[in-house]
Structures are given as C-alpha cells and as structure tokens.
Design a protein around this nucleic acid. Structure first.
Lengths: 106, 106
DNA sequence: AGCGTATATACCGGTAGGGGTATATTCCTC
DNA sequence: GAGGAATATACCCCTACCGGTATATACGCT
C-alpha cells in the first residue's frame, strides 16, 4: 500500500486534487486542463483512487471523479504537532523565518 | 529543486523529523534510533537540508541537526483549503468518512 | 604528526515510478 | 451489431532514488 505522502509527492496528482477541489470532474475535463495525454491522467487517477484520495461515479461512458478528504485529514494529523510548534511559539517561527531572505509565496 | 512533498514521501525522513521534533540531535543519535547504517542517515539528512527542513550546527566532530519549520508551513498552506472544507462542512466529512467500514488509526 | 572518532561523499546495483504509444474495454446510438 | 466516444490497461523505455559498501574529510587529543 502506498502512503498518502508518496501519492502527494507527484505534482500532477496534486494538480488533479486542486482541480477536483472545485467539484466533480470527468476524465476528459482533467485531460484538457492538465494538458497531458489521457493514459497518464488515468494512471494518476488510479493511484489516487488506490490511496483513497478520490472516488469515481460512473455515468454512461463518463467517469466522474471527486475528492475524498479522509487521507488528507491524516496528513493534517501528522502535521498537527509541528503546526502547534509554530502556532504556540510565534517568536520561534520568526526565528526560523528570518533565516530566509525573502519568501516565495504560493 | 526538490519539493517538500517529495522529501516527505520517504518514511525514514519523516521519522527523522519526528525525532528532531523533540529537539536537536546529532547524527550518531539518529543512526542509533533509526537502526539504519550511518551513510543512509547522512544521505537523508542531506536531502532534508537541501529542502530546508533541517539545519546543522557543528560542534567539534559532532553535527547537531534541528528542525526548520518553514517548509512545513508551506505544506500546511497547501493543505489549508482542504482543511477548510472538512472543518466547515462537518457533515460533508462524515459523508466522506462513512464510506470507510473502519478507521485504521495512526 | 599520528590516531580515533564522527560524519560526509563516491560508487554501484537493483527497482519502482513516470511518460509515451498502442490496444483493450465499456457503453451509447443508430 | 456496427461504429464511435470515453476511459482503462499493457507494454516499453528511461531515469531517479534507495540501500549498501568503501572511502574521504574534518576534528580533537596526545
């Protein structure tokens, strides 16, 4: 079984999740928006499905994919203690941050 | 440059971060606790360092590693919209969760 | 200067993962 | 049931990554 972190390591897969954030999408839509060949998209979707990050609904030939949040909740849980660190000690965070000349943003 | 997600994909590296969560550690300590050969640990530390997830302080032959939170903050920022989803619509989360027969826990 | 300790780096072999192309599968329509 | 649309799967190639072993580098001590 593949860990959620491994699945999220692929930029394309995070892109897919970001697209599904807005709501259900069928494969063709994803192919178009990602600008990558359909088999590649299907392959990533398979990985995402295996990890429980998406689920499928079939409608005629179309397959509609949508998010499943649960694995992300687990990632969030792993992150939580660290988040507590920088939220509780804001000064410590600044000590961490001031080492960076500038911040890249998103 | 390697994305933080790729770096976190490695279980050993997350273990290292979890160990550093408690505070500074030198390499030998990490080697002992992880039960893996020293060169492997050093290699992972190099990756973590390149990603800005740890920083080093030298003291004689010892190298003390400690956490840098900033990249984790960025991961948290990526996660935030999704977290908002499940925090705002708790019922929606439950709809997501009830698809699972049982929960594996951590 | 020489030795021991602590850590990093070089090198090698195996392997899993991603891209690309071709093909199979499924379903709808006529 | 034939054809076409939508998606999945099989196969191949290639590269990046991980583990392991050997070696280099840096530092302190005597």
């Amino acid at each position: 079984m593949v860990s959620t972190f491994e699945v999220l390591a692929e930029p394309r897969r995070r892109e897919i999740l970001d697209l599904l954030y807005a709501g259900e999408r069928h494969v063709g839509e994803l192919v178009e928006r990602l600008g990558m060949p359909q088999p590649g998209v299907s392959k990533h979707l398979k990985v995402l499905r295996a990890a429980g990050l998406v689920e499928v609904r079939q409608e005629a030939q179309r397959r509609w994919y949508r998010l499943r949040l649960q694995p992300l909740v687990e990632v969030d849980q792993w992150l939580r203690p660290y988040r507590d660190l920088w939220e509780r000690h804001l000064d410590a965070l600044e000590r961490h941050l001031d080492a960076m000349p500038e911040e890249g943003g998103r």
